[in-house]
Computed example of a mutant assay.
Amino acid sequence: MDKYSEGCHFIRHYSTCSLNVRILTLVQGLVVLSAWGYLFCQSKFPPSILVAVASFGVLLTTFLFRLNAGYLSAADEFAKAVVILEGAEGGPATHYEKARESLYKNKWALFFTLNATFIFIGFTFFVCLVISVLMEMHT
């Protein structure tokens, strides 16, 4: 297998890993938020349990966000290497990188695309954590 094919393979691999982590984040968020909601609706559980569940959700989402950032960083490095291998005439990776750079040139584009899952789930857990702490303070 030549260097170009190898580089393209790694780009596909890390892009797939990034997508899988975002899907996993959404699923774990819905599961843990459902558990928090169930505990919230039941009056027999102390608010400290709600704090623990919401904290776990925040920590797990943060871990998955950092894992995804590592995958994206690796994919970027392999994409840069493949662009160099394509040379001055360019190729598919060169055009892809140009389109990607124009799409993600500002922080808002990253906010609403690549990081949207983590921000949505993380913010929801943060709100749950605040509600849980307030409930704990009032008991």
Score class of each variant (00 low, 15 high):
S48D: 09
A75G: 11
T117F: 05
N106T: 06
L60D: 14
F123K: 07
K44N: 15
V83H: 02
K107Q: 08
L26R: 03
M137S: 11
T62C: 11
V127W: 01
M1Y: 08
T117I: 04
E136H: 05
I23M: 08
F118W: 05
Y14T: 04
G7W: 01
K80W: 01
C8N: 07
E101Q: 12
L50G: 13
A116I: 00
H9P: 12
A74W: 03
A75M: 06
C41S: 15
Q28D: 15
S5M: 03
K107F: 02
I84V: 09
L60N: 12
L59Y: 08
Y104C: 12
I11R: 01
Y104Q: 14
T139S: 14
V133F: 05
Y4P: 05
I23P: 13
F40D: 15
V21C: 08
T124C: 09
F63V: 03
G122P: 09
L39M: 15
T16A: 14
S102K: 10
L60S: 10
E86V: 00
A79F: 02
S5Q: 10
V83G: 01
A35W: 05
T113M: 07
L50D: 06
D76E: 13
N20M: 13
Y96H: 12
V58Q: 05
L129R: 04
A54C: 04
T16R: 11
L134D: 15
F65V: 04
F45A: 12
F123H: 11
F120I: 09
A75N: 06
V133Y: 04
S102F: 00
L33W: 04
N115D: 14
F123R: 08
V31Y: 08
S55R: 00
I23L: 09
I84F: 02
T113V: 06
V127T: 08
A109T: 06
V27T: 11
L103R: 07
W108R: 10
Y71F: 12
T25W: 02
I84A: 11
S73K: 05
F123D: 14
L19W: 10
G122T: 06
P92S: 05
L60C: 07
F40L: 11
L129Y: 05
L30E: 14
F112N: 11
T113N: 14
L64W: 02
A74H: 05
V21R: 02
K105R: 13
S15F: 00
K105N: 15
Y14C: 03
F65T: 10
F65N: 13
F45L: 04
Q28E: 15
F10S: 08
F126C: 11
P46H: 00
Y4R: 07
E97M: 02
D76A: 11
L59V: 08
L26N: 08
R66T: 06
A35C: 10
V21L: 09
G57P: 13
V31Q: 14
I23G: 12
S48V: 00
G29M: 01
L64T: 06
P92L: 01
F10E: 13
F111H: 13
S132I: 03
